[in-house]
């Protein structure tokens, strides 16, 4: 590991109104690696993930403190353009949420907004490339004008991944992307994450520990809004340093 981390978070606190959801979390998200956030539900994994592309801005009661940087640049600085930030840090949600538009329009949405394609041919190329990277091209290439919502759940989720990578992000955040999918669709997404790893920094929230072990190189264990342990996935799963991590991994609670 020669280069510096893609994103750094230092002493991050998040409050929803008077309630603290994240307390003093510091973490690095590295280029070309997958970091998994695990922990019992309600411990703040989603909340923390959403601080990384400022999606918490859309929650009126949320207040974020601390220092979060992308390539050394403070993403909460006043001069930071949220539109640009979110183009660079893409997000995939728990429930597949394709827009009620055609498959093509779903993928073309981001490039259009950000003016990334100079011509129709350009846009076609971006759509094809994104769908190919998301492993969906062969399944939908003949019906790009069908509605995105008519696809199966797993295909919808890959469409959402295609939509996210169409704007050429540097980081992709995934919030339990497989929790609404069946095992086969889940396996496909996991495979996809492996393929995407070389190109993007990826952070994935999961409640499935086997999944964390399979797809990630780094794992962060959250509990009650704090980061309990962060390290190489193999260490966390075979040799946790903290008692609480060990309890969680061995299924003592969760």
């Amino acid at each position: 590991m020669t280069d510096s981390p893609k994103m750094t978070a230092r002493h991050v606190n998040v409050h929803y109104g008077p309630k603290q959801a994240i307390a003093d979390v510091s973490i690095d998200i590295e280029q070309d690696r997958v970091v998994a956030f695990i922990g019992p539900s309600g411990c703040g994994k989603s909340t923390f993930l959403r601080t990384l592309n400022r999606m918490n801005d859309t929650v009126p009661s949320a207040r974020v403190e601390g220092d979060i940087r992308l390539d050394g640049q403070d993403i909460y600085a006043p001069e930071m353009d949220v539109v640009q930030l979110r183009a660079r840090v893409g997000m995939v949600f728990q429930k597949p949420n394709p827009f009620p538009k055609s498959i093509y329009e779903n993928v073309a949405y981001g490039p259009r907004i950000h003016g990334l394609a100079a011509s129709k041919a350009d846009l076609d190329a971006v759509v094809e490339r994104s769908l190919t990277r998301a492993g969906l091209w062969n399944e939908v290439k003949d019906r790009l004008s069908d509605s995105g919502t008519a696809l199966s759940g797993g295909q919808q989720q890959r469409l959402c991944i295609a939509r996210a990578i169409a704007v050429d992000p540097e980081v992709i955040l995934m919030d339990e992307p497989c929790s609404a999918l069946d095992p086969i669709a889940t396996a496909k997404i996991e495979e996809l994450i492996h393929e995407l790893r070389g190109r993007y920094a990826i952070a994935i929230v999961t409640h499935n520990m086997q999944q964390a072990a399979r797809v990630s190189q780094r794992t962060a264990f959250f509990h009650l809004g704090t980061l309990v342990e962060y390290g190489a996935t193999s260490d966390i799963f075979t040799n946790p340093r903290q008692e609480r991590t060990k309890d969680y991994i061995t299924g003592r609670y969760g």
Binding site: M55, R86, C160
Partner: peptide, 27 residues
């Protein structure tokens, strides 16, 4: 319209008014 639509659009870097015009109102 599920708030997931809105979030999906905002997370792509769309502004509020783009989200409303291109996603919320069509939906």
């Amino acid at each position: 319209v599920p708030s997931a639509m809105r979030d999906g659009s905002l997370a792509m870097g769309a502004t509020s008014s783009e989200t409303i015009r291109k996603v919320m109102i069509p939906a």
